[in-house]
Amino acid sequence: MFVGICSVDIHIPWARSLKDKRQELKGIIDKLKNRFNVSVAEVAAQDFWQHAVLGISTVSASADLTRQTLQKAVDYIEENANVEVVDFNIEVL
């Protein structure tokens, strides 16, 4: 069994309030959960309007599949959300 964890540092340039930020993140989180069957939560920078850190995790029988799932989730955020991915880190344990 392999556990994958990923932290994604996000910049939301258009957000002018915490409400804007939370609205955008809710959409991202719901889509990631449904599309990739991963667990997702905002894990840092909760009080900043334009900055967020998402934690994503998954479990699989294969290290490669675990890494691919997390990479696809990050790619999805970069391609389909109205945010900028500043940095991300993937670890497979």
Rank of each mutant, 00 (worst) to 15 (best):
F2Q: 11
F2H: 14
G4K: 06
I5A: 13
C6W: 08
D9P: 02
I10E: 00
I12S: 02
W14A: 13
A15R: 02
A15I: 03
R16K: 12
L18C: 09
Q23P: 00
L25K: 03
L25P: 05
K26Q: 10
I28L: 13
I29Q: 10
D30V: 08
K31Q: 12
K33H: 04
N34I: 03
R35M: 11
R35P: 01
F36S: 02
V38T: 08
S39P: 02
V40T: 06
E42C: 05
E42W: 07
V43E: 10
A45D: 13
Q46S: 11
D47I: 01
D47L: 09
F48Y: 13
Q50K: 10
Q50H: 01
A52N: 07
A52G: 09
V53G: 03
L54Y: 06
L54Q: 07
G55S: 13
G55E: 05
I56M: 06
T58S: 11
T58I: 07
S60K: 07
S62R: 07
S62F: 02
L65V: 13
T66H: 00
T66N: 06
R67I: 05
Q68E: 15
T69M: 07
T69E: 06
L70T: 08
L70Q: 10
Q71E: 15
A73H: 11
A73E: 12
V74Y: 09
D75V: 06
D75Y: 01
D75W: 04
I77Y: 08
N80A: 06
N80E: 12
N80R: 11
N82G: 00
V83F: 03
E84T: 15
V86D: 12
V86R: 13
V92W: 08
